[in-house]
C-alpha cells in the first residue's frame, strides 16, 4: 500500500549562503495492507521528515513514493489532495483548524469531504469524541481554546473519522493518560483489522511493540554529516 523506493531529501537554504543540507538518502520501505510499520531512530534522524515526504508535505528530491498507485513525488497537487481526502490519513502532533468551527464539525469534516451523509458523519464524530473522553459540553466549542491533551485527542478523532486505507501516525499516544492511550491503541488495532497500512512514530515502546509488526530504523537513511 505504501512503498518508498530509494528516496532522498535535502533542504537548500537559499537565504543562508545557499547551504544544502541533505537529510535523507536511499530511503526505502514498504507497508502492506493491515500492516503497521514503526519508524525508529534518534531525534533528528528524519522520522518526521520521512512521514512528511509520504504525505506530500515535503518534496522528495529523488526516488519514488507510492501510496496505492500514485507516486506522490511526482503527482499533481490535485492528485495529492484526492489521495489525502480518500486514501491517506495523517494524525500529526498539532491540530490545525479554522478558528470558530465547533469540535464536532472539525471531527466530522473528513467524512463530509468524501461525500458522507451529514448525519452519519456527525454520528461517527460523536462516537469517536465519546470514546476519547472529550466532555460533551465541549463539542459545540472550537478546539482552539482546548488544553494540549484535549487538542491531541480531537486531532486523533479527526484522523480516525474516515476509514483511510493508509495512515500516518506521528506519536499518537504522546501525552495521553492510560485510559485514552488504551483507546487510541484499540483504534489503531481496529484500523489494521480493516486492512489499513500504517506508518507511525511511537516513542512509547510498549505501544510500539503492541501494535507494530515491524520497525525500520531511519538512521540508516541519514546521510553522513558531510555536506
Amino acid at each position: 500500500m505504501i512503498e518508498l523506493i530509494n528516496v532522498s531529501k535535502s533542504f537548500t537554504l537559499h537565504n543562508q549562503g545557499s547551504a544544502v543540507i541533505p537529510v535523507m538518502q536511499g530511503a526505502s520501505l514498504k507497508a502492506a495492507a493491515g500492516e503497521c510499520v514503526a519508524l525508529t531512530g534518534a531525534s533528528g534522524a528524519g522520522k518526521s521528515t520521512l512521514m512528511r515526504v509520504i504525505y506530500g508535505n515535503y518534496l522528495a528530491a529523488s526516488g519514488q513514493v507510492f501510496v496505492g498507485d500514485l507516486d506522490v513525488a511526482k503527482a499533481e497537487p490535485r492528485e495529492i489532495l484526492a489521495l489525502r481526502r480518500e486514501t491517506l490519513g495523517y494524525v500529526s502532533q498539532f491540530l490545525r483548524v479554522v478558528p470558530r468551527v465547533p469540535t464536532l464539525e472539525v471531527v466530522a469534516e473528513p467524512l463530509l469531504a468524501v461525500g458522507c451523509d451529514k448525519q452519519a458523519a456527525l454520528d461517527k464524530a460523536t462516537g469517536l469524541l465519546g470514546r476519547l473522553n472529550i466532555p460533551e459540553r465541549l463539542w459545540s466549542l472550537s478546539p482552539t481554546t482546548f488544553s494540549g491533551g484535549e487538542q491531541q485527542r480531537v486531532n486523533i478523532a479527526r484522523g480516525f473519522a474516515h476509514d483511510y486505507p493508509a495512515m500516518l501516525l506521528d506519536e499518537p499516544t504522546a501525552s495521553l493518560d492510560a485510559q485514552n492511550r488504551e483507546t487510541v491503541l484499540s483504534l489503531i488495532e481496529e484500523a489494521k483489522a480493516r486492512g489499513a497500512a500504517i506508518v507511525g512514530i511511537f516513542h512509547d515502546i510498549e505501544a510500539r511493540s503492541r501494535v507494530c509488526d515491524r520497525e525500520i530504523n531511519v538512521s540508516e537513511f541519514t546521510p553522513g554529516m558531510a555536506a
Binding site: 533542504f11 506530500g56 508535505n57
Partner: peptide, 21 residues
C-alpha cells in the same frame, strides 16, 4: 507553485523561503 502546505512547509525557491520565514 504547488500544493499549499508543501510550498509553505518546504519552499524550494529563495523568494518563497524568504516570504515564509
Amino acid at each position: 507553485a504547488g500544493l499549499t502546505d508543501q510550498v509553505l512547509d518546504d519552499p524550494q525557491h529563495a523568494y518563497t523561503q524568504l516570504l515564509v520565514s
